[in-house]
Amino acid sequence: MAGVTGRPVRVAVVDDDPLVRSGLRLLFAGRPDLEVVAEGADGTEVAGIVDAHHPDVVLLDVRMPRVDGLEAAERLCARPRPPYVVMLTTFHADAYVLRALRAGASGYLLKDAPPRELIDAIRRVAAGEPILSPAVTRRLIEQVADPVSHDRRVAARARLERATDREREVAAAVARGLSNAQIADELGMGVPTVKAHVSRLLTKLDLDNRVQIALLVHDASLLS
């Protein structure tokens, strides 16, 4: 996935509620840097929409009647060079959202979020920045996730062993919700160095974004 430069961000909206779809289309219509290129009412339509319209960002309703947003997100994120995937939900804590984040979704949006927040979120995710902070991820995990099993904890710790000690320090800071600037200040390094560590973590651990780093650190039970 790559950030978008020099043209409007192409957005597809997939939600079984036509009022939600029309509301989002109207919301984005007055923004020259955002363009709704396609709409769908069910997860069964997602593959065709992506193939035909090549959106940069796909907004997926979590709960749809035939193929839900979770399954659609998993299918999209498994593609080579997939679009950014953002889950739409009315629930602050939804186990489906957590599973979608594990699959590679870049974050989630609440449907009742203020318009400015929704617009800013789409711009940020199109630039490659997950819109769900690791701090929010932790709260979501605490509310909806099953306790981490012994096997999952062991597997997560083994995976993190691929990283250097410094990279694990950065991973733990990411999971605490710190920004790159805050990590740099806390660990005594420059922001470009922090970015380089995060990039190496994503590569070494075969992850898609910072949210997944936070989830892996949680699974390893490395945060108090």
Rank of each mutant, 00 (worst) to 15 (best):
A2I: 07
A2Y: 08
T5K: 11
R7I: 05
P8G: 05
V9C: 03
R10Y: 08
R10W: 00
V11P: 08
A12G: 15
A12H: 15
V13P: 13
V14G: 14
D16I: 14
P18A: 14
P18E: 09
L19T: 15
S22Q: 15
L26H: 14
A29G: 04
P32R: 04
D33H: 14
D33T: 13
L34S: 13
E35Q: 15
V36F: 12
V37K: 09
A38P: 13
A38G: 15
A38I: 10
A38W: 11
E39I: 01
E45F: 10
E45L: 00
G48A: 06
I49V: 09
V50W: 06
P55L: 01
L59R: 15
R63C: 08
R63I: 03
P65K: 11
R66K: 14
R66I: 12
R66Q: 10
V67A: 00
D68N: 15
A72Q: 10
L76P: 11
C77W: 00
C77G: 03
A78E: 03
A78T: 07
P80M: 04
Y84H: 12
V85E: 03
V86R: 06
M87I: 00
M87W: 01
D94M: 05
Y96P: 03
L98Q: 07
L101Y: 08
R102L: 01
K111Y: 07
A113F: 09
E117P: 04
L118F: 01
L118P: 06
I119R: 13
I119D: 01
I119P: 14
D120G: 14
I122V: 15
R123C: 04
R124I: 03
E129L: 12
P130H: 11
I131A: 09
S133C: 07
V136P: 09
L140N: 07
I141C: 12
Q143D: 02
Q143Y: 11
V144A: 07
V148L: 05
R153M: 11
A155S: 14
A155Q: 15
R157A: 10
L160C: 05
L160Q: 05
L160M: 10
R162P: 10
R162H: 10
R162A: 13
A163T: 06
D165N: 12
R166L: 01
E167G: 03
R168Q: 13
R168S: 06
V170G: 08
V170L: 03
V170E: 00
A172M: 13
A172G: 09
A173I: 06
A173Q: 15
V174D: 07
V174K: 10
A175M: 01
R176W: 06
R176A: 10
R176I: 00
R176M: 08
G177F: 12
N180A: 11
A181W: 05
A181L: 00
A181F: 03
Q182F: 01
G190D: 12
V191Q: 11
V191H: 02
P192M: 03
T193V: 11
T193A: 14
V194G: 06
V194A: 02
A196V: 02
S199R: 13
L201T: 01
L202W: 04
T203H: 06
T203W: 01
K204E: 00
D206F: 02
D206Q: 11
V211Y: 02
V211Q: 09
Q212Y: 08
I213M: 03
L216I: 04
L216T: 09
V217P: 07
H218R: 10
A220C: 05
S221M: 06
L223F: 05
S224I: 03
